[in-house]
Computed example of a mutant assay.
Amino acid sequence: MAKVKYYYDSDTLSYQKIKPRKGQKLKHFLLTLLAGFIFMILGFFVFTPIFESPKEKELKRELEFVKLNEELHGKKITQLDKILKELQERDNNIYRLYFEVNPIPEEQRTAGFGGINRYKALEGFDNSQMITDVTKNMDILSKQLYVQSKSLDEIVKLAEDKEKLLAAIPAIQPVKNEDLTRMASGYGWRTDPFTKARKKHWGMDFTAPRGTPVYASGDGVIERADQASAGYGKHIRVNHGFGYISLYAHLSNYNVRKGQKVKRGDLIGFVGNTGRSQAPHLHYEITKNGTKINPINFYYGNLSPEEFEAMQKAAQIEGQSLD
């Protein structure tokens, strides 16, 4: 209820009601409306940051969570990059060095990404720079990990090949020492027993009684077991792979057949005197990539240092060969 105001009339000596004019009422109404509107505007700009809506609070929490995750991802990428660098160092300076292969160049490991801007879609946001940096670092790390993974695949293959190579190399004496009468002739220039002329002797002759066991000097496949090669008589050729072939000549008999797989130390034949031979013995040769090489360098598998030294001295004597 509106308050009623009075004034004192000195003429009538009484109180009379004050009647407000219509213009004043309108003015009072408009002032009240304006004050309310101003208060509403001030409330929106001043009090809204203090009193957030549930939706705004949820979005703010999500944004803070995203920022925290980006920081954690950045730290993890730094740690992974450090681990990867150590692995790359071992890969180049230990693994690849051991297997005698070239190290991976640094520019190949750290090559960038060409072409259009890969990160254009990440631009225009409040945290675009941070997100772009993290994404770019993850891409670089992923590529380096891929290169390193391929390198380790290669190392594994080289290790497998190395193991096979070590088993395949002709590394033992084909006739046991206790079965030998003597080591008759070595690799090099010798006197031919039939023509008495000096000629190159391409293998080593092991003198032993007829029927003495002959053993494969390395893993491989029997390439030949026949007497169709002039001068060698009954002989065996073992293909060891990796370019190595060993030959066992003047045999009395075979214990293998063509195409058969053998292991180092397997019995493959017996000493004889077939072909162009002056007395029972084993003529033994090694070929590497088509070139005949001195077998004496391949006896590390079953000779002591003393036995090897004695064999070297005997092999250097330029006497007469037995074939």
Rank of each mutant, 00 (worst) to 15 (best):
E58G: 09
T135V: 08
G265E: 11
S252H: 10
K263H: 13
G269C: 03
A2D: 12
V271E: 02
K17I: 07
S151F: 00
K76L: 14
K75H: 12
G290Y: 03
G203T: 00
K22W: 11
G265S: 03
R210G: 03
I50W: 13
L31Y: 13
V101D: 03
Q316L: 06
Y244D: 13
D226V: 03
S142L: 04
E178N: 11
E58I: 06
F51D: 04
F39I: 14
T212K: 00
K234T: 05
S246H: 10
G114W: 02
D133G: 02
T32C: 09
N297H: 15
L152H: 08
L59S: 14
E163L: 03
Y299I: 01
G269M: 03
M204S: 12
N297I: 03
A208N: 07
N92T: 03
P209G: 11
E71M: 09
R61M: 14
R109C: 05
G269F: 00
P170L: 04
K85W: 09
M311Y: 09
R210H: 02
V46W: 14
L87G: 07
G36F: 12
L145A: 12
Q88I: 08
L34W: 12
I169D: 03
D205N: 09
Q148V: 00
K19Q: 14
I222F: 06
V221P: 06
K258S: 02
E62V: 12
T212G: 07
G233L: 01
L303N: 10
S229P: 02
Q320K: 10
G23E: 15
G231S: 09
L158V: 01
P295Y: 05
E52F: 11
G23L: 15
N289K: 15
E309W: 00
I293H: 09
L84M: 11
L282D: 01
Q227D: 15
E62L: 15
M138T: 08
Q24G: 02
Y146F: 04
F194R: 11
G269N: 05
E318K: 13
D11T: 13
H201P: 01
N239Q: 06
G115D: 10
K313R: 14
Q316S: 06
F242N: 04
F47P: 07
G259N: 04
K234E: 10
A216M: 07
K27P: 05
G231V: 05
T12E: 14
E306S: 13
A197H: 09
A167Y: 03
S149Y: 02
F99K: 08
D126Y: 01
A167S: 11
M138A: 13
K136L: 05
E223M: 13
F99I: 09
I83T: 14
Y7M: 07
Q129R: 09
D219V: 01
N239W: 00
K19V: 14
H235K: 11
S321V: 00
L267I: 00
G188K: 05
K157G: 12
V4F: 04
F45V: 15
R118T: 04
Y254R: 08
D205K: 02
I286D: 06
A216F: 08
A230Q: 15
I83D: 12
G114H: 06
A310R: 13
E160K: 10
Q278Y: 03
K164R: 15
Q144P: 07
N253K: 07
M138C: 07
A208I: 01
Y299P: 03
